[in-house]
Design a protein around this nucleic acid. Structure first.
Lengths: 152, 152
DNA sequence: GACACACCCTGTAGCCACTACAGGGTCAAG
DNA sequence: CTTGACCCTGTAGTGGCTACAGGGTGTGTC
């Protein structure tokens, strides 16, 4: 199958498939006489694996690690579990951060009813403050889970 | 004050201050005879405003809009409230997504106790599936709030 | 055979909000 | 006169794509 069919069958854009190949997540497929990529079922399975991991917001680096375990089955797979646990911890940390953020935004929002003119707007005034202790300053290791503006 | 002092007083890295200037969020400051940037208190206030907005995970574009209202007070400030409301909605949407994600990861995690060898690992097996309806496929407009790997 | 059109190819640049250099200049203290 | 802390500009890298530009391939229709 050509790349377009693989794309529709997996729901993954063509450009992204080529990107995964460049990144070494997908092996280079065979080529037709006209230099078209030719995929078989194992490629589709591997791509589904990758996309599934991506819907779980894993990084390509994490996925690379999982694919490595998948490709070289050996020893007990404790490391797989560890990777999932770590990722879960990141997601949970990010949820807590965003909940604090939501609270801070709700408080901020309550500062103004929208009727005053913007030189007296309580929101703008509060934003000009040196940043209260609304948010706990994100201590410790970084969460590696994006904030509110991802996935366009 | 020079850029280093502004940086320590606001907790914003020097490089980032220069970046905000390039982006037009901070005005170009005066220069010393040796071509050093020289800041005064209004610059510090404006930078605090920006950083405060960033801790609330607003985009620079959103901040630009707020600064514009701040710089040109006029009409009722409904648009400020609207911007905050929209941003709040994005954060809430992202929280819900991440909670679904957490559930999916927890389910995935339960597939394996780490004792089997990785060719029989239930996690790897599940990831190779065509992606179940664990996650509701992210319908509607994109949330613009990053996933679990931001803020390094 | 000529053309249209859908699909494919490579390579490069852009997105966001920084971060990290490289390669140099300035300035005060010792 | 040298050290060292600070400053300058400019460029490239991060992640995970996305979007071209500029071309080639393959199929169907006239």
């Amino acid at each position: 199958m050509k790349i377009g069919e693989l794309a529709t069958r997996t729901g993954c854009p063509v450009e992204t498939i080529r990107y995964y190949e460049r990144e070494g997540l997908l092996p280079e497929p065979a080529r037709s006489s006209g230099n078209y990529r030719l995929y078989a079922e194992p490629h589709a399975e591997r791509l589904r694996f990758i996309r599934h991991c991506r819907t779980l917001d894993m990084t390509l680096e994490e996925i690379r690690t999982l694919l490595d375990y998948h490709d070289h089955p050996r020893q007990p797979c404790n490391a797989v579990n560890g990777l999932i646990d770590d990722h879960l911890a990141h997601v949970e940390a990010r949820i807590e951060q965003l909940q604090a953020l939501r609270q801070a935004l709700a408080t901020l929002r309550s500062r103004c009813n929208g009727e005053t003119d913007s030189s007296h707007c309580g929101i703008l005034q509060e934003l000009a403050q040196p940043e209260a202790r609304e948010l706990p300053a994100e201590a410790g290791e970084p969460s590696h889970v994006p904030g509110p503006h991802g996935r366009h």
